[in-house]
Every structure is written in C-alpha cells, then in structure tokens.
Design a protein around this nucleic acid. Structure first.
Lengths: 192, 192
DNA sequence: CTTGTTGGTCAACGCTTGTTGGCAAATGTA
DNA sequence: TACATTTGCCAACAAGCGTTGACCAACAAG
C-alpha cells in the first residue's frame, strides 16, 4: 500500500501526472469543460484515459487539480500609489499570457458551477486584500476588488477568448495605458 | 410543398416555433452550448426533439435563430456628450436584464466558435458606429468600441454569469455611477 | 527466486447526445 | 367525400461520453 506520509519520495508516475495536468490545462483553456474530454486529454498526454481516473478520481477532480492557481500578485505596499493601476494591469497581462490556467478558469467558469466558484474564490482571496490596503474605506474593499476584476476579466475575455480584432491588435503598452486609469480609479478613488 | 415566397400566411406551427426559440434562449443562457441539449429544450417547449430538427435543421441552426439580436442602442447624436457613458451603461443593463439573449450569447460565445463570431459581429456592427460618431479620430472607432465593450462585457460576466457577490449586490445606479466614467473615457477621451 | 506493489493497457459497461425516418392524426383544399 | 399537406410523436441509430475492472509488465524487497 501507498505510504500515508505526505512527504513520500519522488515516484515514477510523477512525470505522467504532470503531463496529464499540462494537457488538461491546455484542453480546458482551449475548449471549456464539456468539450475537453478525458479521452482527448489522455491522448495529448500519451497515456490511457483510465490513468486520469486513477490519479485524479474523476473529471471534476482533474479540473480542480488543473486549476490550482496563485495569481502571484505583487506587493503593492512598497509601490507609489499612483502606479498601482499600471502595475496590476501589466501583471495580469503577464499571467494571462504566461500559461493556460487563467484562460482555462475563465472558459470553464462560464459554464461550470465549480469553475465559477473557483474563480470567485481566487479573485476574492487574492485581489481583495490588495483592495483593502488601497481604497479609502476598507469595508468597501470587496466591491472595489470586484470592480477592478470586472475590467480585467472583460479585457481578458475580449483579447484572449472572444478575440475581438481591435483588442487583439493592441500592444500590451496600449492596453495598459487605457486600462490602468480605470483600475486605479476603481481601487483608490472616493466613492462616486 | 412549402411556398417559397417569404410572406406566407401565419402557420399553425408559428406558436411551436416561438416556444422552441424561447426555451432555447433560456437553456443556452443558463447552461451554455454543450449542456443545453436539444432534448431538454424540446421538453421545456412541450414538444418532441425531432420538431426542433425539422424547424431549425440542426443545433447550430437553432442557436443562430435563438441568438438573433438587436441591441437597440439609443441614438446618441441627440444627446449631450457628457452623458453618453451613463446612457450606454444604463441601456446595456436594461438589455441584459430584459431577456436571455445577451446572457446566452455570452455563455455560448466563450466555448463555441460560432457564438464568438456572432458576438464579434453584433458588437462591431452596432457599437462601432456609435464610437465613430463620438471619438476624436474616427479611424480609431473600432478600438474605442472594443474597449467600451470590454468593460461592459466584464461587468455582465461578473454580475450575471459568475455572480460575484459584491457586484450582484450593487444597485443599478451604483453600477452606472462607477462604469459610466470609464465608458465615457474610452469613447471620447484623447488617445493616452 | 519469489512476492507484493506500482504504472500502465485493454475492453467493455451504461448512458446521453444529435440526428433520422416512418407513421398517425389533424388540417386544409378540391 | 377524396386527397394532399402540415404537425406531431415514436422508436431507433451511430457516436461519443465518463467510468470501471480485469489483466499484464516492470520493478523493489525479502
């Protein structure tokens, strides 16, 4: 039987598990939850579909593992308040283009309740504290964070999912120049 | 055989067709493309699944018919420029809460290529001209329209699809107060 | 060498999906 | 009345899905 201790040595199957996760992220990001089939993910990973079940239990478990996400938001305490918006927008563009996890979460969150819940949790837990340290009334932080999220998610939707041509053609600098004041205002301005 | 003339008299089946369309919009809006099954739509409409095929050909044809959409954007030429943002945001909130077509388009557009194309077309054709009449350089209109769309879609995503609690709890007036300046700036400000 | 564990394939299950064609009743037309 | 069209239901198809359990090869421990 498998050791119960969490710190077991590296197993031979670790490479396989990683390959499954990578394939799953790509498929979830490209196709959404329903059309990302376990069979297709297994084919991409070069193994049998039943292995996915063995290692992740079922499809929901696979998605949960594949969408583990740390936004790695920068520490904004050390920054001049004036540049917060630009820093955040730049950071999100980086994260979105760096790997498939965010696109996968967005695509899945729109049609799958578990995906939506994951998205609410991630943004609430990771963007909320930043808003709390910035906005005039800390009790208003969740709302400020959600407003900023609405603009950032909307941009991600238009640029990486729906692929509106005018948005796709913008450079990263142009996107930052347009969005930074918006995010800045949502996080720091007085309540209108 | 059926008359080829487009202006045939009202048929008995018109009510059925309408019931199918209504059920389809609800299901697409609630479940997205893949999980909105023809069988479920037919059950909602109180008829046999094969009727859906007879009247709309296949599932793609049904979605195309169900997502026919006129944003009914107001004529902004007659309005003071200062209030354009508020008028547009208010109008989109109305449209989004008025029926299921927009939510259906958003949910489907994220996982289905035809849905994404429909979304690009609708926003480009209907929001583009408005931007053209407002922004400093008309050649910049598509980009301005897409920026405004990114904020409006992001809000719709957060409020009606992902249901972020802080966004859901905001009143319509609060949403307008926060978003109007953003949309106003995207459409009318000088290029940053 | 034997034995137990791990990593992996294969074949199948029960179910749901979109889609099709045949048939019966209602309706319209002569 | 007789016929043609429309409207609808029913039963089935082939394909694809998530999931399961039996089985085999490689490896590690004794």
């Amino acid at each position: 039987m498998t050791t119960d201790a969490p710190a077991a040595g590296p197993r031979r199957s670790d490479a396989t598990k990683a390959a499954i996760l990578e394939a799953a992220r790509e498929r979830f990001a490209a196709d959404g939850y329903e059309r990302a089939t376990i069979r297709a993910i297994a084919r991409d990973a070069g193994i049998d579909p039943s292995m996915v079940m063995r290692y992740y239990g079922n499809k929901e478990g696979l998605f949960a593992a594949a969408s583990e996400l740390d936004l790695r938001l920068p520490d904004v305490g050390a920054l001049p308040d004036k540049h917060i918006g630009a820093v955040l927008v730049t950071h999100f563009l980086d994260r979105w283009e760096g790997d498939d996890v965010l696109t996968a979460m967005l695509r899945v969150g729109v049609t799958n309740p578990a995906g939506a819940e994951r998205m609410r949790a991630v943004l609430g837990e990771q963007l909320g504290p930043i808003a709390a340290g910035l906005c005039p009334d800390p009790a208003d932080a969740p709302r400020r964070a959600a407003l900023a999220a609405s603009q950032i998610l909307g941009m991600a939707l238009a640029r990486y999912v729906l692929k509106f041509p005018p948005v796709v053609e913008m450079t990263r600098e142009e996107v930052v120049a347009w969005l930074a004041p918006t995010v800045q205002r949502y996080l720091t301005a007085e309540t209108p």
